[in-house]
C-alpha cells in the first residue's frame, strides 16, 4: 500500500467456530498513521477479525504482527499495553464510574492532565466530567469510549461501528474527527453505514463470508460490480 513499514500485518488469518468459517485467509497490511475501513454485510466476519487483532479471540490459523512482534496468542491486556486500543460495537464504558473516573482507568498512571484535558474537549465531554457513565445518553457513551481509547495514546485504534445509534449530525462529526486522526495514529474502522464510509474516504477492505473480496480506495470500491452485488444481496 504505502512504502512505509506496516504497523499491523495480518497473514492468512482464519477463524472457525466448529465447522463454520467466520474468517478465511485474510492477509492485509496497515501502514502507520493511516485511516482504514473494513466493510461488509452482516456476518461477514468483521467483528471476528477485530476480536482476533486485539486478542479477545484466538486465531485458528495464520499470524498477526504488530510492527515486528507477533501478537496472535498474546493475551488481550498485553496487546493493549503494546499500543492497540479498541472500541467495542456496543458502547463499553464502566457504567458505575463517572466520565472522569473512566478516563482515569483508561489513561496510564500519572498521565499528563493537559493531554486528558485536550481529549475531554475533543470528545465534548468537559461538562459531563462528574456524570456517572450509566446516566449518559447513547451518543455520549460512544464518544466516551472513543475518548478512553485515545487516552491510552495508542499506535493503533480499532473501532467497531463507532456510529451505531448516532444521529446524522453526530455521524458526520465522527467522520470529521476520524479524518483528523490521519497522520497521528493508525485507525481501523468497521462500518455498516455506506454514507459514513463515503465521507471517510479511506482505504477500504470489503469482507464477504469471511474473505476479502476487494480492497482499495473507497471510490474504487464503490464502483466495483462484485461489491455492489454483494451489498444488494445478488451473491
Amino acid at each position: 500500500m504505502t512504502s512505509n513499514i506496516p504497523i499491523l500485518t495480518l497473514n492468512n488469518v482464519s477463524r472457525t467456530f466448529g465447522t463454520f468459517k467466520a474468517v478465511t485467509d485474510v492477509s492485509e497490511t496497515f501502514g502507520p498513521d493511516e485511516l482504514n475501513c473494513i466493510i461488509g454485510p452482516n456476518g461477514a466476519g468483521k467483528s471476528t477479525l477485530l476480536n482476533m487483532i486485539c486478542g479477545t479471540l484466538p486465531v485458528s490459523s495464520g499470524s498477526i504482527s504488530f510492527g515486528e512482534t507477533a501478537i496472535h496468542g498474546l493475551s488481550g491486556d498485553k496487546i493493549a499495553r503494546l499500543g492497540i486500543a479498541r472500541k467495542f460495537q456496543v458502547p463499553s464504558v464502566f457504567e458505575s464510574l463517572t466520565v472522569f473516573e473512566n478516563f482515569q482507568v483508561s489513561a496510564p498512571a500519572n498521565s499528563d492532565l493537559a493531554i486528558l484535558e485536550e481529549i475531554l474537549s475533543t470528545v465534548n465531554l468537559v461538562e459531563d466530567l462528574d456524570v456517572t457513565a450509566s446516566d449518559l445518553p447513547h451518543g455520549k457513551k460512544q464518544w466516551l469510549e472513543i475518548g478512553m481509547a485515545l487516552t491510552m495514546q495508542p499506535k493503533v485504534l480499532l473501532l467497531d461501528e463507532p456510529t451505531a445509534g448516532l444521529s446524522a449530525d453526530e455521524t458526520s462529526a465522527t467522520a470529521k474527527f476520524l479524518r483528523g486522526l490521519v497522520g497521528k495514529v493508525t485507525v481501523v474502522v468497521i462500518e455498516h453505514d455506506m454514507a459514513f464510509v463515503r465521507e471517510l474516504g479511506a482505504r477500504t477492505i470489503v469482507l464477504h463470508h469471511g474473505e476479502v473480496i476487494a480492497s482499495g480506495p473507497f471510490s474504487e470500491i464503490e464502483n466495483n460490480e462484485f461489491v455492489r452485488d454483494v451489498y444488494l444481496g445478488r451473491r
Binding site: 479477545t56 493493549a80 463499553s92 464504558v93 464502566f94 491510552m152
Partner: peptide, 15 residues
C-alpha cells in the same frame, strides 16, 4: 470497579 462493570473492556485497556 471497572473490572466489576466490564472485565473484557478492562482487559482491552491493558489491565
Amino acid at each position: 470497579s471497572a473490572i466489576r462493570d466490564d472485565e473484557v473492556k478492562a482487559k482491552t485497556l491493558g489491565y
